[in-house]
């Protein structure tokens, strides 16, 4: 992790369809970063709701990522599209109350790649 990121708290919501073995793969990150990073695996990124994101910020996260499947690859057909809409909506909400839009970020994975949660997280924090 870069020095500028030191001490920052992260919340990462991710669709579990991305990495079937996420529970094992994320352990190395959990061990390294401890309470600084929190993973919230969700069955589909379309499950995310503005309230989730607001609560994550409320509980002290400096940055919230929502990781979705590539477009067209959603197991539930349109979950990732809905996730994007809800994230935009929440970004507007937090901007209204004076927070930075950038606190919430959508990561849409590229098609054709096999991702694991640990590699992905390192890329995000890298």
């Amino acid at each position: 992790m870069k020095k500028t990121n030191a001490g920052k708290k992260y919340a990462i919501f991710f669709c579990q369809q991305i990495d079937k073995n996420q529970d094992v793969n994320r352990r190395s990150i959990e061990k390294e970063f401890g309470p600084q990073i929190r993973f919230f695996p969700i069955p589909c990124s379309g499950r995310i709701e503005p309230l989730h994101l607001m609560r994550a910020i409320e509980s002290g996260a400096d940055k919230v990522y929502v990781v979705t499947c590539p477009e067209g690859a959603c197991r539930y057909r349109e979950g990732n599209i809905r996730a994007r809409k809800r994230l935009l909506y929440t970004q507007n909400l937090i901007e209204e109350i004076g927070l930075e839009r950038g606190m919430l970020e959508l990561i849409r994975l590229k098609a054709g790649n096999n991702y694991t949660v640990d590699k992905l997280t390192r890329e995000l924090l890298g």
């Binding site: 579990q16 369809q17 079937k20 996420q22 529970d23 695996p41 069955p43 589909c44 539930y76």
Partner: peptide
């Protein structure tokens, strides 16, 4: 929709 919770399976 309802689905099997992947966390449960894990």
């Amino acid at each position: 929709q309802k689905s099997i919770n992947p966390l449960y399976k894990a």
